[in-house]
């Protein structure tokens, strides 16, 4: 007992020390960061007033503007739906490549990881910039951007689900003389189906939100109207668009939560 005590104390002290160092580093970084930035603000005390000013100009929201938002809103929903569907179709093979237990060899495994990483590291809006160059401005570029962003998300999480499956079930299907496609259909797919459905709905939910900003780079959706109104300083219209977006997001979020609860 007596010999063990010092070791414990030392360990504890080291742990505390490392935590303290971590906090200190974080604090120094934050202070340095603030100094580094050229915030260009002479009088920070005016900021709250400016924000309050903007909010006042937004009131009351321009309700009549709603009629003009309906079509772009539908477009946003369509972009999210097509983008999610396309992503599911492409993410399933990517997930099979990126899962250690289903990938054919090391090269395909790293290919899968590469696709997942690149897709996830590049934001939807950047993908949209790229596809606007390719397809011209419009919602098609937006939908493809959503696809490319979602592949990585779905591929990564679905791949992790595939790595968790009970391989005995797969072996039993293989032992009966099934082909590779049949092994996937009977041995793998049933085991990951709830995850696949749940993740897809979850991603659709995220994609609705992402689709609202595609308009900024000309890739369609309600964002086009939003940014037009912002640039025209039509703040009451902006407020209306924001309210509509808020409504849609709240509805899709509860719909997504509800349907995911249904899937067992």
């Amino acid at each position: 007992m007596a010999t063990e005590q010092p070791t414990w104390e030392r360990f504890d002290r080291r742990r505390r020390l490392s935590r303290f160092v971590l906090l200190l580093v974080a604090a120094v970084t934050v202070v340095a960061s603030w100094r580094f930035m050229d915030t260009g603000v002479a009088r920070p005390e005016t900021i709250p007033r400016e924000i309050a000013d903007l909010l006042t100009r937004m009131y009351p929201p321009d309700v009549a503007y709603t009629t003009q938002i309906v079509q772009p809103l539908i477009e946003t929903v369509q972009i999210a739906a097509l983008g999610t569907l396309g992503a599911i179709l492409l993410a399933v093979p990517v997930a099979l490549l990126a899962a250690e237990n289903t990938t054919p060899n090391a090269a395909t495994f790293w290919l899968g990881k590469l696709i997942v990483t690149v897709s996830r590291s590049v934001n939807t809006i950047i993908w949209a910039l790229f596809f606007v160059v390719l397809f011209g401005s419009g919602p098609l570029a937006g939908a493809v951007a959503i696809v490319f962003r979602s592949i990585g998300f779905l591929g990564k999480l679905l791949g992790e689900e595939i790595e968790e499956i009970d391989f005995g079930q797969v072996e039993a299907v293989r032992a009966s003389g099934a082909s590779s496609a049949q092994i996937l259909l009977y041995g793998v797919l049933p085991q990951v189906k709830p995850a696949l459905v749940g993740l897809s709905i979850y991603r659709w939910d995220i994609n609705i939100r992402d689709s609202t900003v595609l308009g900024f780079v000309g890739a369609g959706g309600i964002g086009v109207e939003l940014f037009r109104a912002v640039n025209a300083f039509a703040w009451q219209s902006v407020a209306m668009v924001l309210i509509v977006i808020l409504g849609v997001v709240v509805v899709t979020e509860s719909l997504s939560a509800y349907t995911r609860g249904l899937v067992r």
């Binding site: 400016e50 000013d53 903007l54 939100r209 992402d210 900003v213 964002g223 902006v238 924001l242 997001v249």
Partner: peptide, 16 residues
């Protein structure tokens, strides 16, 4: 949570 950072960003830029 509802608004994408880009939307918040553009409004913040307009404000300050």
């Amino acid at each position: 949570r509802a608004f994408n950072a880009i939307i918040v960003g553009i409004i913040a830029v307009k404000a300050i």
